[in-house]
């Protein structure tokens, strides 16, 4: 395993014991994500893409194999504030203002008052929410709430951003806009991003690499290097290169899918 890797998984297995038998959520998953990469995970529900992200975050414990984050265990990485996690729901606390929500991780991690104020201002600017500091979450649209939750994950400057279908509940137009913003953010912060989605265009538009997964048991069926340049205007989605990558993903998804059941 090389030193430059942000996330390394080796022969990862995870079996959930449930009331009616065991479910193999991950089987023999081996993957290395380099620093500064933007890796998307795509696949039908039950393919283990979310589970993989949760294992990396230390929210699930694998039953086999090994995972290292910045060369340490997920638990240590979490204590080192190595990653920020963005969930499908914004999950902002309604009793806190937008600034208060972004401040939450900083309070827990014990930053000084002035440092907190600085960071809150900076990340809110980054997600274009300046001026909304004192609003409460329910006064904002879904897209703005999700942006606030991204700001919250960015506030403590983790190198790795883990995003679990962050735009899944938003409409197409808002989604396009946020995709563009996220790409810009990744470009000038140089963070490593692990991004779960089930939208093929989203995966192709955003990532440097795309991991195609399939269910029962959850495993990797294809890993695609994205040939698109780093700078990507929205209309890159109409170019032949883009469509070619999308097609390969679609083929990978079909191959991993058995429609018999």
């Amino acid at each position: 395993m090389s030193q430059a890797a942000a996330i390394e998984a080796k022969n990862l297995d995870l079996t959930f014991e449930t009331g009616d038998g065991s479910i193999q959520a991950l089987q023999d998953v081996t993957l290395e994500i380099g620093k500064g990469e933007f890796v998307s995970f795509i696949g039908p529900s039950g393919c283990g893409k979310t589970t993989f992200l949760r294992v990396v975050a230390g929210l699930e414990t694998p039953t086999g194999g090994e995972v290292r984050v910045n060369g340490t265990s997920p638990d240590e990485a979490r204590r080192d504030r190595a990653y920020g996690y963005v969930f499908q729901e914004a999950g902002l606390y309604p009793w806190r203002t937008i600034a208060g929500n972004v401040r939450l991780p900083l309070e827990i991690m014990g930053y000084s008052k002035s440092e907190m104020a600085d960071r809150v201002n900076r990340v809110l600017e980054l997600v274009e929410l300046s001026g909304f500091e004192n609003k409460h979450p329910w006064q904002l649209s879904g897209g703005m709430q999700q942006r606030a939750s991204i700001a919250r994950a960015l506030a403590f400057d983790a190198d790795i951003l883990l995003m679990d279908e962050p735009f899944g509940a938003l409409d197409e137009i808002v989604r396009d806009h946020l995709n563009e913003q996220l790409l810009g953010l990744w470009d000038h912060t140089g963070k490593t991003i692990g991004f779960v989605t089930h939208s093929i265009p989203e995966a192709v538009y955003l990532s440097t690499r795309i991991v195609v997964m399939s269910p029962r048991p959850g495993r990797i069926t294809d890993i695609i290097d994205n040939p698109l340049p780093r700078k990507r205007p929205l209309d890159i989605r109409d170019t032949p290169e883009f469509l070619e990558v999308a097609q390969r993903i679609r083929k990978g998804l079909r191959a991993g899918q058995s429609y018999g059941d």
């Binding site: 975050a57 230390g58 929210l59 979490r78 204590r79 504030r81 990653y83 920020g84 996690y85 969930f87 499908q88 729901e89 999950g91 606390y93 939450l104 991780p105 827990i108 991690m109």
Partner: peptide, 11 residues
């Protein structure tokens, strides 16, 4: 999800 969020902060 809210409890998971607190866990990711090692709260």
């Amino acid at each position: 999800m809210q409890r998971d969020l607190m866990r990711t902060y090692s709260a």
